[in-house]
């Protein structure tokens, strides 16, 4: 990567849009590595932790979904000034949990929230960053997986292309020799969800809610069939799959409606 600063360190900036700020917080949770990271990069903008602002960035990390007209203006502006733009966490990558509201009629959602004054605050469907500007890399998960984020950051600093996994959480789960939660009578989205989190939920006895989004070759009908085998109706199966993935599934899966 070419560095715009004379000190040779890449200028890194963090921005938050509609989100829970959990991914931002996760970045401060590298207590052991934080000082090493600071040796390698120049953090030029990070509103949650510092006052400074900068004109341009070598790497801009974006957290959160695009969900208001103001968000669109801001993200265009950041994209213009950023050499590399990375979507951080599922809100930014796909709309994540924010997109659950997209499956409901917009009028109805706004009316529950604003009553008769629903036009006071314009709101648009929660969109991934990539729906508005070009995204160069992504770090998935809700919250984003810290080791994966470190991998992407280090690769970009070294000018390498980060490695992205595209197989199911089940693979990681089996490697960890976890007891499969399906056997305990829970449902699990591990078979259709993209790995990279080290199957952290099943490793803690909990089911996978699919927070990293579906693998690219998702067998849609197969997934619903599997959930039905474990006693879920098509409607319930879809509902479960949509918790973090409304945007992907609305786009890809038609059979829920037909």
């Amino acid at each position: 990567m070419s560095q715009s600063e004379s000190n040779g360190k890449p200028k890194v900036a963090f921005f938050d849009f509609t989100s829970c700020e959990g991914c931002q917080l996760n970045k401060l949770n590298f207590e052991n590595e934080l000082l090493d990271i600071l040796e390698l990069v120049d953090i030029v903008e990070f509103r949650e932790a510092m006052d400074d602002k900068a004109e341009e960035y070598d790497i801009a990390f974006i957290e959160g979904s695009i969900s208001t007209p103001t968000c669109i203006e801001r993200i265009y502006d950041i994209r213009r000034r950023a050499k590399v733009l990375v979507a951080l966490g599922q809100c930014a990558v796909s709309g994540g949990i924010n997109a659950m509201k997209n499956a409901m009629p917009m009028e109805e959602v706004q009316e529950t929230v604003y009553g008769n004054d629903k036009y006071l605050f314009p709101s648009i469907p929660a969109m991934p960053v990539s729906a508005v500007v070009k995204v160069d890399y992504e770090v998935r998960g809700c919250p984003m997986s810290p080791p994966e984020y470190l991998h992407v950051l280090k690769s970009l600093i070294l000018g390498r292309k980060p490695e992205i996994k595209d197989y199911a959480v089940c693979v990681e789960c089996k490697l960890k020799e976890n007891e499969c939660v399906l056997e305990k009578g829970m449902f699990c989205l591990g078979p259709i969800t993209r790995a990279g989190c080290d199957a952290i939920c099943p490793s803690n006895g909990q089911y996978c809610t699919g927070c990293r989004g579906p693998v690219s070759n998702i067998n849609k009908n197969g997934a619903v069939e599997m959930l039905k085998r474990y006693g879920f109706s098509t409607e319930e199966a879809l509902k479960r799959m949509k918790m973090f993935n409304t945007n992907e599934l609305e786009k890809e899966i038609k059979w829920g409606k037909e």
Binding site: E21, K101, V113
Partner: peptide, 26 residues
């Protein structure tokens, strides 16, 4: 920007509720 959580909770199963409300704020 507002995030519409109460609307999203409607109809959700009792074991999913804390997973969703957790995302109000990391």
């Amino acid at each position: 920007p507002p995030r519409f959580f109460e609307a999203m909770l409607k109809g959700r199963n009792f074991h999913e509720v804390a997973i969703i409300t957790s995302r109000i704020c990391g």
